[in-house]
Amino acid sequence: MILLIQYTLIFASVLILVALGGCVSEHSGIINLGLEGEMVFGALGGALAMKYLSPDSSAIVIIVVSVACAVIAGMLSSALLAVACINFKADQTIVGTALNMLAVAAATVIVKAINTAENPDNVSSEISYVQEKKAFIENINGFEFSWFMPVTVVMLIMIAVLLYKTRTGLRLMACGEFPQAAASVGINVFKMRWLGVLLSGALGGFGGLVYITAGVSQWKFENGVAGFGFLAIAVMIFGQWKPKHIAWAAVIFGMFRALSNVYTGFNFLVALHIPSAIYNMLPYVVSLLVLALTSKRSRAPKAEGIPYDKGMR
């Protein structure tokens, strides 16, 4: 039971971070389907930082450096999306998908190049960080408390305040509803959209790092992040683009995801003899059902997905 709570909380943290990223970007008017790719880049940045840091460094150094690397990697990758979608008015769906593919391919190539350079026989795309990972975790009576959990709560509050209580946030949201009107009162739509996408990249990258340290100590970059970025988008839609709702949605989804990791610990679940494939697909099935039921009365930002055109009415 403790294990279930632990995994639920850590997966929920990932989903909250990434879904908040999607939320900020969509409020500025850009659909960020590249979140999955930004997670991979963030994970890669964080993993490489952990690989090259000496395991003797103090916990705080490891945490700060690897998080910073993940955030920067996520932001850099989201800049690729921002340039194409904001300045060159490219199709956001295509560029997002391209970014996802690019991320997995680039991460595989980079990690394999590093591994092969170190040892010509090592052609795997795996990075392991057993020692460094311990910096993130405090063991309290068998419950692995991760420092990312409270950080996520702080981020959640910060994003909610940013969006609803600050001038920048309200301006950013205006650009996702009716950019021409926002521009008419002197708001720079391009700048706001860049801000939204870069923030989402930072959150996505951070989420990627949290994901690859959730319960495992090595990551195979060929696999990307297994659709987690898209699960986060589903969480965001289910949360109706509102931070508070996103948090609850993330906990529910996180629990279903956690079940596939820990169901063997529950005697009554094992007794049901359900194949493990069912547990694996459960989060996706649930999200599909939830989306089918909630998307009808969608509160999506009105101008999302449409490239900004000054002359359009």
């Binding site: 690729l80 194409a84 979608c85 060159f88 008015k89 490219a90 199709d91 295509i94 560029v95 998908t97 391209a98 970014l99 593919m101 690019l102 997995v104 391919a105 680039a106 595989t108 190539v109 394999k112 190049a113 092969t116 052609v123 060929e222």
Partner: peptide
């Protein structure tokens, strides 16, 4: 020295660039 995924990388760069076709 290299890995075969380099071609996946090239094709994903090509799709990314396809976003600029309009431009």
């Amino acid at each position: 020295v290299y890995c075969s995924q380099i071609s996946d990388l090239i094709s994903s760069i090509i799709i990314y660039l396809c976003g600029f076709v309009l431009f």
